[in-house]
Design a protein around this nucleic acid. Structure first.
Lengths: 160, 160
DNA sequence: CTGAGTGCAAACAGTTTGCATTACT
DNA sequence: AGTAATGCAAACTGTTTGCACTCAG
């Protein structure tokens, strides 16, 4: 359906390794919190919120302060290893950025909140077209599609 | 540039009138706060945050509690007179919904926060295409383009 | 009159910041 | 050793809620 599921785990492992390397190269230390956050991001493959990371870490026995998680996320964004997008749920979801700089967007279920990524070449080129035409110089873009996921639609009868 | 400026004031006046009528028809009372919020929305033509409405009201001498503003906005959204979109600034921007159900999206300046609406047929059809293809049933969509507005670009030299 | 609507202040959620402590390198 | 990184708690922002008061119908 033009929808990409989560990346292969090899890809995610590669991201983790690249993140560590980049951090080191840039002179940042590998502290407990930072490493833990990178591990979770790698394990999850992105599309995750700060809170989800904190709770996942807590469950895994690694107690990490929220502040450190936010600081780690901010740093990874700054180093272009991660990108945060506000899908309008009140919290930001973070996506791994690969070398391929793939653009994907989000499909959000208004009922259960289930969020899945998708990508579409036609959409990208339409956006490129608009970007060229407007007087802002566009650096990034975000697209969110909202509706009902298959299971909520089935469960609730009519959609939306 | 395919960018629509703000609607004609007649259109906004029409919206105000329709909002009042709809509210009355649905059995809601026309209290001070509610009316004031509708007036501001009509005067601004949309693309405004709750806080902006509060401060605009304050400046105009009408003291309205934040809570009432949020409640009025929620009600208008429920009645499909208004649509809130989270552009990722931390606050939600509200747009008047006309009978024409026009789709516009946002161009946000990452430096000064200046937000302008735009519309693009090609983008809409690309989105319709994706919507048809995915397994969610898509009800609404939001697109945000981020970058530098002309004046920030001029002021800061290089963009983004 | 009477309850819908309002304002205030307190509560909340997500995120950020100050600061003393910890632990990479 | 020395400083970057961390954790805690307190601050902050945008939004929501509880509750007594008020005013539109």
């Amino acid at each position: 359906v033009g929808v990409s599921a989560s990346q292969a785990s090899s890809e995610r492992a590669e991201w983790v390794e690249r993140a560590r390397r980049t951090l080191a190269e840039e002179g940042y230390r590998a502290g407990e919190a930072r490493s833990a956050v990178i591990d979770v991001l790698g394990a999850e493959g992105g599309c995750i919120t700060a809170e989800e990371i904190v709770s996942r870490l807590g469950r895994g026995g690694r107690t990490v302060g929220v502040a450190s998680v936010y600081r780690a996320l901010a740093l990874l964004c700054e180093l272009r290893l991660l990108q945060g997008t506000d899908i309008g749920e009140g919290s930001v979801r973070y996506e791994l950025l690969g070398a391929k700089r793939e653009h994907h967007h989000h499909l959000v279920c208004d009922h259960c909140g289930r969020t899945v990524p998708f990508e579409d070449r036609g959409l990208e080129s339409a956006i490129e077209g608009v970007s060229r035409r407007v007087d802002y110089s566009v650096a990034v873009h975000e697209v969110t599609l909202r509706g009902s996921c298959p299971s909520c639609r089935r469960r609730a009868g009519v959609d939306s």
